[in-house]
Amino acid sequence: MSRQQRKAVALISGGLDSMLAARVIKDQGIHVEGINFFTGFCVEGHTHAIRQKDRNKKKRNNALWVAEQVGIKLHIIDVIEEYKDIVLNPAHGYGKNLNPCLDCKIFMVNKAQAWAWMEENQFDFIITGEVVGQRPKSQRKETLPIIARESGAEDRLLRPLCAKNLTPTLPEREGWVNRDALFDFHGRNRKPQMALAEELGFSEYAQPAGGCCFLTDKTYSSKLADLWQSRGERNYELDDIMLLKVGRHIRPKPHYKLIISREDGENHYLSGYRNEFISLESKSCKGPLALLDGVPRDGDMEQAASIVARYGQGRDAQEVLVEIRMKDGSAQELKVKPLPPDEVVSSWHV
């Protein structure tokens, strides 16, 4: 490849917009490679991998799939640790739930830039699939320049799908890309993107509802807020945020929570955590595996066991035998009466 050929790194989320943006620029003769960031919150195949009932669904990673369709390399970067600061302290605040979209975009463009300008990579500019007015907070006309400025990418950040609505960037001014062949999409209407997809021959693409990560999900966000509140500090590890995607979360007391599996796949997944949590499982009949998160006090084990028994096949039995296994592998058995459904208080459900 001669140095005359310009190079662009495309932020690939796995959705339609970034797919179109990358393809449009590639079609202009630019060498494009994709970059995708794994924050731990991404809506990817996790739940499909865990839940038995989802196993027939496609488990592919959409960013990889998009890269294959467009015909570009994709680099997936683990940013779990650095991303914590974005989730915990977003300078621009949260969206509707715990989604720090604006800070997240700034962070990702900044990371892409750090990667792109590296000596061994030497890319010339960055592209994203952003469209003016598409998202209420992070893709407004006033916020797009903030992303360019605060990420440090400045005018080397090109949004091919809405470039004609924005001030010309360096790649346009220098003639590396033809501005006339870019687009002026705006707003929430998806029809122009769909028409362009058809024109480019893309018949299949992912259309994530809401957003590209679990932080836009109301239930998930309330589980995360509950985690912080119960621990008395805003922090998390990867296992914490993965476990929030699995099972029923029931908090009968402020100091402990149960994560109760809903089916075999989740049972299998949670069993991998038995050395890190106290676990409970019905022995006298088939029932779910549950992890106890917290430090139980007097009487809590009985209460936890009766809740777990309530979700097993012995829910109507007079008595169920529940095994309680400690982290070191030692176990004891408790005979409990399953908690009647009306005694599982709705406010316990996180």
Partner: peptide, 16 residues
């Protein structure tokens, strides 16, 4: 152990 790897790792290999 994640069955998704059966799709994703070959996909990553193809593009690289």
């Amino acid at each position: 152990t994640d069955p998704g790897a059966l799709i994703d790792i070959p996909s990553w290999c193809r593009i690289h």
